[in-house]
Simulated assay, not measured.
Amino acid sequence: MPIDPVKAIAAEPRTARLTWDHKDVQLYHLGIGAGRPATDPRELRYTLESQLHVLPSFATVAGGGMALAGGLTAPGVDVDLAAVLHGGQTVTAHRAVPVRGDATQTSRVAAVHDKGKAAVIVLRTDVADADGPLWSSEASIYVKGEGGFGGERGRQTRLDVPETVPTLSTDRRVREDQALLYRLSGDWNPLHADPAFARRAGYDRPILHGLCSYGIVLKAVVDTALDGDVARVRSYTTRFAGVVYPGETLRVRMWREVPGPGRIQVTATAVERDDAPVLADTVVEHS
């Protein structure tokens, strides 16, 4: 079996050095749609090195996005990239992400869940620099066709969409070349660029990276609900509920203090496909 849960969970944590500078941050921000309009002072916070602030979702690509790739090459894990989807993601910020960094990443497979027709690999990552912890993240990696091994199904956390009118709502247009730009931050899965590979995976054309949608939505929340202050984000959790195709429009709806104070519940849908779900069970915790 390509996935050996016992071996994967028992493996020693992997460590790696992560380094980044303003160019990596700027490229990431451009990859999630920053810089429109190019001279807007609110956008220059994401694109101009002299004014740069770092979205916490940058943690998913810092150092070339090595954490997620490590989860797919861990001992006991041997899977086909065409069968892999990103199921969910959480980033917890312990403090503001610096514009330039030199840090150590420690990653391990925390769990392997049996969903019947698929397996879900849960990858836990902690990052610290000389001043202490920077961020922690947890990724759920969905692998089609690898379930049925008799393991635990794992918890399911579902949030009901509030019946009230959203506190805030905004649309974000995804560029036709957004996936091509985003993949330069380190996710080279051909699913997001190669039409033939995408067809083999069951899609009629390449799809946007789930983590690109993740970044686009966090930026929308920060810009509209948190006064553009990236440092207010404490954690950001989502479940990837559907795909996005480059060229589509994301509609981001926000409910303040749902399910509690200091929390914003969020949904993201694809406007052109009758509001097909994109991100669900999504919460931004903030100061």
Results as ranks from 00 to 15, higher is better:
residue 183 R to S: 03
residue 157 T to D: 13
residue 172 R to P: 00
residue 220 A to H: 08
residue 195 P to I: 06
residue 202 G to S: 12
residue 256 R to N: 10
residue 174 V to R: 00
residue 206 P to T: 01
residue 177 D to E: 14
residue 155 R to T: 13
residue 201 A to N: 09
residue 221 V to K: 09
residue 199 R to G: 05
residue 200 R to N: 09
residue 166 P to M: 06
residue 243 V to W: 01
residue 153 R to P: 10
residue 250 L to P: 00
residue 190 P to C: 01
residue 216 I to F: 05
residue 233 V to G: 07
residue 173 R to G: 04
residue 218 L to A: 06
residue 180 L to T: 12
residue 258 V to I: 14
residue 253 R to H: 06
residue 206 P to R: 03
residue 223 D to A: 14
residue 156 Q to F: 08
residue 209 H to K: 03
residue 176 E to R: 13
residue 193 A to F: 07
residue 182 Y to A: 02
residue 237 T to M: 06
residue 184 L to H: 07
residue 231 A to I: 06
residue 207 I to N: 03
residue 196 A to V: 13
residue 202 G to M: 10
residue 239 R to W: 01
residue 197 F to H: 06
residue 158 R to H: 12
residue 255 W to L: 06
residue 224 T to P: 00
residue 175 R to C: 00
residue 224 T to F: 00
residue 252 V to P: 05
residue 192 H to P: 00
residue 199 R to E: 14
residue 219 K to D: 15
residue 185 S to N: 15
residue 245 Y to K: 05
residue 196 A to K: 11
residue 215 G to T: 01
residue 225 A to P: 09
residue 195 P to R: 08
residue 212 C to L: 04
residue 249 T to R: 03
residue 207 I to A: 04
residue 191 L to D: 02
residue 235 S to R: 13
residue 211 L to C: 01
residue 186 G to H: 09
residue 236 Y to M: 06
residue 231 A to F: 03
residue 217 V to Y: 05
residue 199 R to M: 10
residue 235 S to W: 08
residue 232 R to Y: 12
residue 223 D to K: 04
residue 225 A to L: 12
residue 200 R to C: 01
residue 230 V to H: 13
residue 246 P to Q: 07
residue 221 V to P: 09
residue 256 R to L: 15
residue 224 T to N: 15
residue 245 Y to H: 14
residue 229 D to G: 08
residue 237 T to H: 14
residue 207 I to V: 13
residue 194 D to V: 04
residue 249 T to S: 11
residue 251 R to T: 08
residue 230 V to T: 15
residue 210 G to C: 03
residue 237 T to I: 04
residue 207 I to W: 04
residue 180 L to K: 14
residue 211 L to F: 02
residue 231 A to E: 15
residue 187 D to C: 07
residue 229 D to C: 12
residue 205 R to Q: 15
residue 175 R to H: 05
residue 171 D to S: 13
residue 226 L to H: 09
residue 178 Q to T: 03
residue 170 T to W: 00
residue 157 T to L: 13
residue 248 E to C: 12
residue 202 G to A: 11
residue 191 L to A: 01
residue 217 V to M: 04
residue 189 N to I: 03
residue 243 V to A: 10
residue 228 G to V: 07
residue 186 G to W: 06
residue 164 T to G: 10
residue 200 R to H: 15
residue 168 L to N: 11
residue 257 E to S: 15
residue 188 W to F: 15
residue 192 H to T: 00
residue 174 V to M: 12
residue 210 G to P: 03
residue 216 I to Y: 03
residue 251 R to M: 01
residue 172 R to T: 07
residue 194 D to Q: 11
residue 196 A to Q: 12
residue 183 R to I: 03
residue 231 A to M: 05
residue 189 N to L: 06
residue 241 A to T: 00
residue 236 Y to R: 09
residue 226 L to K: 11
residue 239 R to V: 04
residue 193 A to Q: 05
residue 197 F to Y: 15
residue 214 Y to V: 05
residue 175 R to Y: 00
residue 216 I to C: 04
residue 165 V to I: 11
residue 154 G to T: 10
residue 216 I to M: 15
residue 181 L to K: 07
residue 196 A to Y: 04
residue 174 V to T: 12
residue 168 L to E: 15
residue 239 R to C: 00
residue 165 V to C: 04
residue 159 L to M: 14
residue 256 R to C: 02
residue 235 S to Q: 07
residue 169 S to H: 04
residue 235 S to M: 09
residue 245 Y to A: 09
residue 173 R to P: 02
residue 226 L to F: 05
residue 252 V to R: 05
residue 185 S to I: 09
residue 162 P to Y: 03
residue 230 V to W: 09
residue 190 P to S: 03
